[in-house]
């Protein structure tokens, strides 16, 4: 059973839909007991990082997520919450990934939010098994995690090379939306399910 953490952080149904397409059983839950009992945990998130962090804190889930020893996948804002901190607020994160989250600088023809399909590079994890460098995935975000020791994939937006994905021990995070990234996204989710 996969637990998708339900903490009122945007359109999280699409992650469940993607798991359903892959034939994986899941539940949307904020119940600590259910999250602890799950084989894998997904922390989705769309919207404002500070608000999302507050929602997670209100549900008493911060320490619980940090202490998980099963595979955990943070998606988009979910990944950003797993970093040290974010300029969006600003807000302290869970501190799982050694990365800071900053806002993209706007420039002519460099639009913010970074929205649409962009190419992955420097793939370095089992999460990307059978995924080619240069594969396109779908992004929607205005804030990004910089490069660091936990970076397992990169992407470029204008002059900024940022972390498209992060990993630390059993924790994974993708800035992009695998659930909206066609067959490449499905392959990445399948790899996560196979961990």
């Amino acid at each position: 059973m996969i637990a998708i953490i339900d903490y009122d952080a945007g359109n999280i149904r699409s992650v469940g839909n993607a798991l359903e397409r892959l034939g994986a059983a899941y539940e949307l839950t904020a119940d600590p007991a259910r999250i602890l009992a799950a084989d894998k945990v997904i922390l989705p998130g769309v919207g404002n990082a500070a608000k999302a962090m507050e929602n997670l804190r209100e549900r008493g889930l911060c320490q619980l997520v940090r202490d998980l020893r099963r595979p955990v996948l943070g998606i988009c804002v979910g990944m950003q919450l797993m970093c040290r901190d974010s300029e969006e607020g600003p807000v302290e994160g869970l501190g799982i990934f050694d990365a800071h989250v900053r806002r993209f600088a706007e420039a002519p023809d460099i639009k913010v939010p970074h929205m649409g399909w962009n190419a992955l590079g420097n793939l370095d994890s089992k999460l990307f098994r059978d995924v080619d460098s240069g594969s396109f995935v779908y992004f929607v975000h205005s804030y990004y995690a910089g490069l660091g020791p936990d970076t397992i994939a990169t992407c470029r937006h204008g002059g900024t090379l940022f972390s498209a994905a992060l990993k630390y021990e059993n924790f994974y995070g993708t800035q992009f939306h695998p659930e909206k990234s066609g067959s490449v996204g499905a392959a990445i989710l399948r790899n996560f399910l196979a961990l």
């Binding site: 993607a18 359903e20 397409r21 909206k180 990234s181 066609g182 067959s183």
Partner: peptide
């Protein structure tokens, strides 16, 4: 549609 397709 949301259940069926895997693009935005």
């Amino acid at each position: 549609i949301a259940l069926g397709i895997d693009i935005p």
